[in-house]
Design a protein around this nucleic acid. Structure first.
Ligand SMILES: [Mn+2]
Ligand SMILES: [Mn+2]
Ligand SMILES: [Zn+2]
Ligand SMILES: [Zn+2]
Lengths: 171, 171
DNA sequence: CTCTAAACTTGGAATGATTATAAACTAGAG
DNA sequence: CTCTAGTTTATAATCATTCCAAGTTTAGAG
């Protein structure tokens, strides 16, 4: 609930309006640990905000990123940008197979960010500390399937593909 | 010249063919400090390889990324993915105004990467350590232009936009 | 409250980076 | 030199993201 307040505060201080859509997006972003994409946010809010537009999600994300309260992590193997409302220094781990992104506590990122802030000469707006590879689950998965020598050419995932295999009762 | 060899070696060991196109792309990637996008590579090689196709650039980049010898840094404010053939632990600084990406030496990234490798449980394929913001030049630039309160809505950059203002004799 | 200008939202169209395809080429093993 | 699986390439297709023109809503002045 504190992170939500931080984003709301940022909007207020920037003199921007606090619309229900923005509030909903902010709340979702601030409370999830999912590092969602615009599409994910859109789908998760649609039930409660039937009129919500994807364009608004993108607009709001851009606004929050410009305000420096949301970081742009980039793609996780899917072709969509993932966002992170947790701007405290931390490491993100992206699985290029299941496209999930999780956080990893680290004792060095703080020093790293500090170092960058003081030595770069840049006016920093955001961080993108992501290591990508295969998560434990997907490694096992890969071990099962002898990984048919298919090199090259990847299939593009369809628009509405959901992730979530946690132990899921999806679909 | 050593980095070039590393990429070439990776292709060889994977049993992939060493075509002139791949070699050219590899050489460019291995020797530049530019963190180029596919388009940039394409444009820089076209003079010497008139028949080169953008598709080949993308294909080769994917191959190199899959081999783990090239990292995907993501966008720098432009809407194109930047690549980095330097896979040694280091920090990248992206300017979201001039879209340039430079390296920053750091004494902590090594420990960080080490930490991630040993504690994550992930099979790591690549790193994306990027801090984004405004480079010193663009900060000055911004100071000059009172930064007209234009919030929201960004203009999309056109396909052939070149960067390079180093002290350039462009155009 | 009421009113209103400015800020937002929205559906739908447009854009353009990246991918897919199919046909023509060639690296390189034998 | 031969032969073919791996590559390249031109071109079409895809689809995440951005743009646009209207229709709404917010928040502050009166
Ligand atoms: Mn995170
Ligand atoms: Mn770099
Ligand atoms: Zn996974
Ligand atoms: Zn700059």
């Amino acid at each position: 609930m504190d992170r939500t307040e931080k984003l709301v505060q940022a909007l207020r201080e920037a003199g921007l309006r606090l619309t229900p859509q923005r509030l909903a997006i902010v709340r979702l972003l601030a409370t999830t640990d999912q590092h969602p994409t615009a599409q994910m946010i859109y789908e998760q809010l649609r039930p409660d905000y039937p009129s919500l537009s994807l364009a608004t999600v993108y607009n709001t994300l851009e606004t929050l990123v410009d305000l420096g309260v949301v970081n742009v992590l980039g793609s996780a193997g899917d072709d969509a940008v993932h966002y992170d409302a947790d701007t405290d220094p931390h490491v993100n781990l992206a699985c290029i197979s299941c496209h999930r992104v999780i956080d990893l506590p680290s004792q060095y990122v703080h020093a790293l960010e500090q170092e960058v802030a003081t030595t770069s000469g840049y006016r920093l707006l955001g961080a993108r500390v992501v290591y990508y590879g295969l998560c434990p689950d997907c490694q096992r998965e890969a071990a099962r399937q002898p990984a048919g020598g298919r090199r090259h050419r990847r299939r593009r995932r369809r628009r509405g593909e959901h992730h979530q295999t946690q132990s899921g009762s999806e679909e």
